[in-house]
């Protein structure tokens, strides 16, 4: 039997295992539902941002300043927001990758669950008896996670694209499809899905306790970007004032994936897209390497 036969069996078995518990519809349900919600929220935001400035101010202030003057600082902040968002390209990118926010977290969690379930459900013994080479098991799970990430990206992107096109076209801004910056961000979003799935497998192999792994990954994902932003803002203000210091927040994985897919600058000092990709790839490789090493050395049972 060749190593590739062995790998194929593991992948097929993993897909079968996933299909025969409630995990698959829980994940796909969550994926579709959050994408729908985010697509609608994104669409409403996009329409607001694409209005002429006067109307934009009306909507943002909920008409509270009707007849009166808007305080000048507030007005200039609104103008800043409007300028950065009042571009059909920016809105197209946001809308077409609306699936990303929760989608990436979900594929990461899926990767974690693929590994940690073996320990949470005590099936690791049975799995490693059938496939004693632990590297093959991890590789099989990795391929499974990547395949599922591609499917997840495809389905959720279809939802984001459909609703995005409806909103943009309906508001008279065309679809913006065919513009390379927009198309590229949709494709880079696929790369982000794949990398987060790999990241999840490595994370799960490293932290085998399912609860600890899923909760810490969720916190890292949801709070990581904000925390990194705040931290490097503080460093920039009090320690070393330089634009590249702000750029360093790309080391937070959540920031890195946003940087990777965004054709326009996300924040002051935001590095080019490839840096985001490099950071994510580095994390994925590191976690897989460490996770595999831990699994190879440890005793099962």
């Amino acid at each position: 039997m060749t190593p590739s036969d062995r790998l194929r069996r593991v992948v097929r078995s993993e897909l079968f295992k996933l299909r025969t518990t409630s995990a698959w519809w829980q994940f796909s349900g969550a994926m579709v539902l959050t994408t729908l919600v985010l697509a609608i929220v994104g669409g409403v935001n996009a329409r607001t941002a694409l209005k002429p400035f006067a109307e934009y101010v009306q909507i943002r202030t909920h008409g509270r300043f009707h007849g009166a003057t808007v305080p000048p600082e507030f007005l200039s902040r609104l103008r800043g927001d409007w300028v950065s968002g009042h571009s059909a390209v920016t809105q197209a990118v946001t809308l077409y990758s609306a699936n990303q926010l929760i989608g990436l977290l979900l594929v990461c969690l899926l990767g974690i669950v693929l590994v940690t379930t073996e320990f949470a459900q005590r099936t690791a013994t049975s799995t490693f008896l059938i496939t004693p080479r632990r590297g093959t098991v991890v590789a099989g799970k990795l391929i499974t996670a990547v395949m599922l990430a591609v499917v997840a990206w495809f389905v959720t992107t279809l939802i984001s694209l459909t609703s995005g096109v409806l909103f943009l076209h309906g508001a008279g801004h065309g679809t913006q499809l065919g513009y390379w910056g927009v198309d590229r961000s949709v494709l880079l979003n696929l790369v982000a899905y794949i990398l987060w799935a790999i990241f999840g497998i490595g994370f799960g192999a490293l932290i085998r306790n399912q609860l600890v792994a899923t909760v810490s990954a969720t916190i890292l994902y949801l709070v990581g970007a904000g925390a990194a932003g705040a931290l490097f803002d503080l460093l920039n203000s009090y320690v070393l004032s330089a634009t590249w210091v702000l750029g360093l927040q790309v080391i937070a994985p959540a920031v890195a994936s946003q940087v990777m897919i965004s054709p326009t600058s996300l924040f002051t000092g935001s590095p080019p897209q490839w840096v985001g990709a490099a950071v994510l790839i580095a994390y994925s490789a590191l976690f897989i390497g460490l996770g595999l090493r831990r699994l190879r050395r440890s005793d099962i049972g």
Binding site: R12, S13, T21, R122, T123, T127
Partner: peptide, 26 residues
């Protein structure tokens, strides 16, 4: 080998547990 009695996923049927093992074992 039979090493521990409780070594199948709680939410999977016995039949599917065995079928998953069949696939992995070729």
């Amino acid at each position: 080998a039979v090493l521990e009695a409780s070594s199948a996923h709680r939410g999977r049927t016995g039949h599917n547990h065995l079928r998953a093992a069949c696939i992995a074992a070729g």
